[in-house]
Design a protein around this nucleic acid. Structure first.
Lengths: 234, 234
DNA sequence: TTAGACTCGCTATATGGTTATCGATATAAA
DNA sequence: TTTATATCGATAACCATATAGCGAGTCTAA
């Protein structure tokens, strides 16, 4: 969806290289991870799917299936080893080696992300910010320099940065994406509410707040003025 | 969702009241809306599904199906009326009447959302912020007062606020959600990376950045160290 | 006025993900 | 040592969504 997820993150027309794990499962893994780290901190060493499911609101089968994708193997009756499971998820998600990223759009949202130190625990380090606003270029936000967008593609190449984050207004997003592609960036985390046009081999994930907002307001509207009642199922 | 969706927003165990529109379709509607507003600004009055699909990267059938949910009817050969379509989407999503919301957690992300004026165009107005940090209580952020969390449930009831936004750390989120439920809040937009435990009738949408991050780093890791090659399909 | 082409809207099939079921295995208790 | 129970792992049924195909309507152009 988003994904895409889409989840947020909704898959595009078709993926040439089908992922070996469903997008929703991938999205649930960090939840398990967070939960497990908490368990470990409390000194718990073994855990079962039923327990995880019970605590997190999923059914055990689903949890087991998700975890299986990471390659972990559990033992009947006792479940999984907590530290092993944590490692397994981290390895699977590639959280061991850090991805360095460039962020473009030093507005409210961009600033928030720049200040989010916790990302570094999950394999992400934002190393610099970019903007086109002369007022912002040259500033330091949360210890990261704000540079001119012109420099992006060159720097990305030289520093081998593979991940780009777009937090610009919708209008600017496509141009930024083009620039990123030019700089050899492989994956884009896009917070602008537009569908980016990029070469097939570039990974794009949209974090579209308006999609969520749409769901929420639709459901709320539906709850408060229910009169329409589903178009009169004839 | 984020789709939930979970594209972010992943559906929970089961929904008692099945939505009459698929979650993914709901998530795509704002994209169409944004695209259409842009078209209208350029003076274009009629549009076909094929055109929309071509521009946005979907196949025409899907676009048509999504739009049908809003109740719009198009004309063969000419397509849809752009202004009509925009109105249709807005009405369907309930963007005509504003939802007032409370936001809890005046950190980086909370501040960013408070400053996001564009939300008001999409049926959302954040009317106040809450926090537990004494240093923050009493401040004004982007013209919104930061109040003590203690006041939330009472104020929510008196002001009939139905929407809550959680931008706290994971640890605090559940307590905040409980408080919101106590105050009669109907829907929660949750940015904390935890699965909230709330009564069945409360709408919860998770905007879990870590889910997206997981997808991205998995895909990047997969791209750069491909050796494993899918567990050796025996 | 008529032929042609384009596009909508409905119905049917295919795909992907979730849920249910079954057998196997390891622990714990008798 | 034996039996009962909890849990994993795999297979299979099920459901939702995405895709494809077909017929009908309307506009354009000759």
């Amino acid at each position: 969806m988003v994904i895409d997820i889409n989840l947020s993150n909704l898959a595009g027309p078709k993926l040439p290289n089908p992922p070996s794990i469903p997008q929703p499962s991938l999205a649930r893994l960090p939840q398990y991870h967070h939960y497990l780290v908490d368990l470990e901190a409390r000194g718990i060493t073994r855990i079962s799917c039923s327990q995880i499911g019970g605590d997190l609101g999923y059914i055990p089968v689903q949890v087991r299936k998700d975890l299986q994708y990471t390659g972990i193997i559990g033992k009947p009756k006792t479940g999984y080893s907590v530290p092993e499971l944590i490692r397994s998820i981290e390895t699977f998600l590639g959280w061991n080696n850090i991805n360095e990223a460039f962020l473009v759009g030093a507005g409210n949202l961009g600033t928030a992300l720049l200040g989010h130190e916790r990302f570094s625990k999950f394999g992400l380090r934002i190393v610099a910010a970019f903007d086109t606003d002369p007022e912002k270029i040259g500033l330091w936000i949360h210890e990261k320099a704000v540079l001119s967008l012109d420099q992006l593609s060159d720097l990305a190449q030289r520093m081998s940065v593979h991940l780009g984050i777009i937090t610009t207004p919708a209008e600017a997003a496509q141009a930024v994406a083009d620039e990123m592609v030019k700089g050899g960036i492989q994956a884009i985390w896009n917070f602008a509410p537009v569908k980016l046009r990029v070469p097939e081999n570039i990974i794009v994930h949209n974090e579209d707040l308006y999609s969520t907002l749409a769901s929420l307001s639709w459901k709320l509207a539906r709850r408060f003025n229910v009169p329409i009642q589903e178009k009169e199922a004839v």
